[in-house]
Simulated scan of single mutants.
Amino acid sequence: MKNRPPPLPDSAEPSTQAAPRWPASRMLRWIFGLQLVFAAILLGSDMLRVLPQLAFPSSAPAITQPLGPGDQTRRYDPAQIDPRPARPGTRPIPATTDMPSRLDFVDTVWDGQPVITLTGQIAPGDAARFADFLTTVDPAPTQAFLNSPGGSVQDALDMGRQIRSLGINTRMTATDICLSACPYLLAAGTARSVADGALVGVHQHYFGENTALPAFMAVENIQRGQGEVMEYLSDMDIDPLIMRHALLTPPDEIYLLTPAEMDSYQLTTSQ
């Protein structure tokens, strides 16, 4: 009969007890507290972004004030910009109501050619809506009339690439505006026309929503966004020096380009 090893002392026996667990109520309180911390961080980052503008609002003239040499910066608030009544016979769809909070797409015939009008703010998701809209337009449009105070940069870039891929010309009449992200739509036209009196303006952009990211990651996102814009302008044969005015103009102001500047940056083309 084989010898059995002596039994282990009680203190050396393997434990069969499970690790202590937090009560469900304590776990829920901890998760809720963590959510409050993240919400406070997000709110704080948003406040840091807008407080300077609230404390020191722009003293620039209203956007409706006439331009002068070296006097091209105007106050910018997309919620306060309404369409200017179109002059008879200059635009397929006269704009006489409030500026839509997201792009309104209309296809029609103008001077015997199929055209589309894009009116309103560029909201997130408008690029996908625009792609769906284009599938319903037959025959394909030859021109796109623009009238927008701007909005989502990424959607504007995506829509611009769609416009260029279809060989559509972009056009603005004398009472149209194209501000903030809208000039990227203008830049997409195979041919680009801006009538005297139209307002085309650029400024600094936000890229994506604020998140609780370290500062270096936030800067990286901004740099990535600017790089994408520069690549887009190059693909559209636009002089990237146009970004100089955008980078020097805060988000609550807009730098209005003169006809000579638009021509020098190739934002407009000879018709």
Rank of each mutant, 00 (worst) to 15 (best):
Met47Asn: 08
Met47Cys: 10
Leu48Met: 14
Leu48Tyr: 09
Arg49His: 13
Val50Arg: 12
Val50Trp: 15
Leu51Phe: 14
Leu51Asn: 04
Leu51Val: 14
Leu54Gln: 05
Ala55Gln: 14
Ala55Pro: 00
Phe56Arg: 10
Phe56Leu: 09
Phe56Gly: 03
Pro57His: 02
Pro57Thr: 01
Pro57Ala: 03
Ser58Cys: 05
Ser58Pro: 00
Ser58Gln: 02
Ser59Cys: 05
Ala60Gly: 05
Ala60Gln: 12
Ala60Arg: 11
Pro61Leu: 13
Pro61Met: 11
Ala62Arg: 13
Ile63Ser: 07
Thr64Lys: 06
Gln65Met: 11
Gln65Phe: 10
Gln65Ala: 15
Pro66Asn: 10
Pro66Val: 08
Pro66Gly: 09
Leu67Met: 11
Gly68Ala: 15
Gly68Thr: 11
Pro69Cys: 02
Gly70Pro: 08
Gly70Thr: 06
Asp71Ser: 13
Asp71Cys: 02
Gln72Asp: 12
Gln72Leu: 11
Thr73Lys: 14
Arg75Leu: 10
Arg75His: 10
Arg75Ala: 15
Tyr76Arg: 02
Asp77Thr: 07
Ala79Trp: 08
Ala79Lys: 08
Ala79Met: 10
Gln80Arg: 12
Gln80Phe: 04
Ile81Tyr: 06
Ile81Glu: 09
Ile81Thr: 06
Ile81Trp: 07
Asp82Tyr: 05
Pro83Gln: 09
Pro85Tyr: 07
Pro85Ala: 13
Ala86Glu: 14
Ala86Ile: 04
Arg87Ile: 15
Arg87Pro: 01
Gly89Ser: 02
Thr90Arg: 05
Ile93Phe: 09
Ile93Lys: 07
Ile93Ser: 08
Ile93Gln: 14
Ile93Cys: 01
Pro94Glu: 01
Thr96Gln: 12
Thr97Gln: 12
Met99Ser: 04
Pro100Met: 03
Ser101His: 09
Arg102Leu: 13
Leu103Cys: 07
Leu103Glu: 06
Asp104His: 12
Asp104Phe: 08
Phe105Tyr: 12
Val106Tyr: 08
Thr108Gly: 03
Val109Tyr: 00
Val109Thr: 09
Gly112Cys: 02
Gln113Gly: 01
Ile116Thr: 00
Ile116Cys: 04
Thr117Cys: 08
Thr119Asn: 11
Thr119Gly: 03
Gln121Tyr: 03
Ile122Glu: 07
Ile122Phe: 03
Ala123Cys: 05
Pro124Lys: 06
Pro124Gln: 06
Pro124His: 04
Pro124Tyr: 09
Pro124Ala: 11
Gly125Thr: 08
Asp126His: 02
Ala127Tyr: 01
Ala127His: 04
Ala127Leu: 05
Ala128Ile: 11
Ala128Lys: 15
Arg129Lys: 12
Phe130Glu: 02
Phe130Asn: 04
Asp132Phe: 04
Asp132Lys: 10
Asp132Ser: 12
Asp132Glu: 15
Phe133Leu: 05
Phe133Thr: 07
Leu134Asn: 08
Leu134Met: 15
Thr135Pro: 01
Thr136Ile: 00
Val137Gln: 04
Val137Glu: 06
Val137Pro: 03
Val137Met: 04
Val137Lys: 00
Asp138Lys: 13
Asp138Gln: 14
Pro139Val: 09
Ala140Asp: 10
Gln143Cys: 00
Gln143Asp: 07
Phe145Pro: 00
Leu146Glu: 01
Ser148Gly: 08
Ser148Ala: 09
Ser148Tyr: 05
Gly150His: 03
Gly150Trp: 02
Gly150Leu: 03
Gly150Gln: 02
Gly150Thr: 03
Gly151Met: 03
Gly151Leu: 06
